[in-house]
Design a binder for these strands. Structure first.
Lengths: 249, 249
DNA sequence: CGCATAATTGATTCAGCTCAAACCGAGTGG
DNA sequence: CCACTCGGTTTGAGCTGAATCAATTATGCG
């Protein structure tokens, strides 16, 4: 953790309202939530900076307050992206709470703000608040579900279809901005989709011929019908994981 | 659910001791655990039988009391195995508790006994017992962790390495039987490892040349050194997921 | 015994990887 | 203002692991 660290008190004042509104604290007894938030420390990370490294234990439960975080396994020079988390998401809650050595490293993709709660404080709070445990369970379930979707995507769709579907979803998540914006580098995108940067580059040409193109970091959906047909309909019953407090991409 | 169904009372009597010892109920207040178990219904499934189908909601939280269950996405004729669960494991707890339509179907691989608890009863109990919520969270985290391991295996190892590593782990999990026993068909094994049956067949010859062979359903580890070298060392820090109440393969 | 399902074997194809080279745009400093 | 890096990206050529398709051969199992 090399970034500027604010004092706990400082963090609590600045972040209070923000954190209080997070799904994690929904329905949690006010007094308890407040005391948890008072224990929180926030940290800013620059794009590209590592937040924590695989194979180490995690002593705090971290939540993304701003930014985007890539969870991936780093093996030599190659990175295998597993999940892309966004604001409101928790970082490997299981690893933090159950002393699992992380399987994954976390890296900030954009300028990112992380709030951390000491794991033992959370564990203590869980034994008092059924609702907090419930929320944690709902988030963990949702993240797992997202991870299963990725696994299935990887084995049922071609690289081109995954690229198309991912960009399309990204566009749908920002309905107000047109054109939609790709918040990460193509390199990271390729890692997230389990392909090499070279393949991504080639595949984008193919995708462009089917109604969706990426110029710079702007995503243009030119022919929705066509691109949807091309990607294959999302094989999964629609379910907005955001209801579970999951904002992963 | 086409199998013989026992009455709840019947189930409770027969299964009481068995269920009470499951990780799910560890540390849960005795009265509460007992009343939950009284609400449980058990069902037997024949090998190959579907336990539930993808895209449907789940109304009960199911736990495997005996047998092996394959969680997979069925797409036309091809099946994509995601996780192989064993006795003591829960079946998609998140789907049952949060009304997620399942992404996966569950199929009994061996003769299997499933105990089910109505989801709303569990939800009610969770609000009373922090420990029950905690246990559910630990199981869900552990299953997710296992699923991440699979994802990583799929993208970092070759088919042959995955086959070798899987059989080796299977052998290690039954230290008392020699030779170790493959409890499922090769077809299912291939699905679990994300390869075709043809590839599995070919790859087994290759694996045999590196110290591990499969004759019928017997697994012989002839040269442990060699096969471990061949598969590449398990890249993940050792952690026995069984501590988390997860027995998935 | 005989049929259905599972497993092997062979021939061929193909999606995506690797390696290597060219390209491009944004900073940087002379 | 321009030359010069230096990432990140693109393009090209060739390779390869695993899938597919098709044809046998084994293995239960009723």
């Amino acid at each position: 953790m090399t970034s500027t660290e604010h004092s706990a008190a400082d963090a609590a004042e600045n972040d209070f309202d923000e954190l209080r509104g997070f799904h994690l604290f929904e329905g949690v007894e006010a007094g308890l939530a407040d005391s948890l938030i008072a224990n929180c420390t926030s940290l800013w990370f620059k794009p590209g900076e590592l937040i924590f490294e695989q194979d180490n234990p995690l002593t705090r439960l971290m939540i993304i307050s701003r930014g985007l975080v890539d969870l991936s396994r780093i093996e030599g020079t190659r990175e295998f992206g597993v999940l892309l988390l966004a604001a409101h998401d928790l970082l490997l809650p299981g690893a933090a709470l159950f002393d699992e050595p992380c399987l994954l490293s976390a890296r900030a993709l954009t300028r990112t703000k992380i709030c951390g709660f000491p794991a033992d404080v959370i564990l203590g709070a869980m034994s008092q608040s059924a609702r907090l445990s419930f929320n944690l369970l709902s988030v963990t379930s949702g993240q797992w579900r997202m991870s299963v979707r990725n696994t299935l995507d990887a084995s049922t769709r071609t690289a081109a279809q995954r690229v198309g579907a991912f960009l399309l979803r990204l566009a749908d998540l920002q309905p107000h901005t047109s054109p939609a914006f790709l918040p990460i580098s193509k390199r990271h995108l390729s890692s997230r989709l389990g392909i090499t940067p070279e393949t991504l580059s080639r595949v984008l040409q193919n995708v462009a011929e089917h109604g969706l193109y990426l110029r710079g970091r702007m995503i243009f959906v030119r022919d929705r019908e066509q691109i949807e047909r091309f990607c294959g309909p999302d094989p999964y019953i629609a379910r907005d994981e955001r209801e579970l407090g999951v904002f992963a991409l």
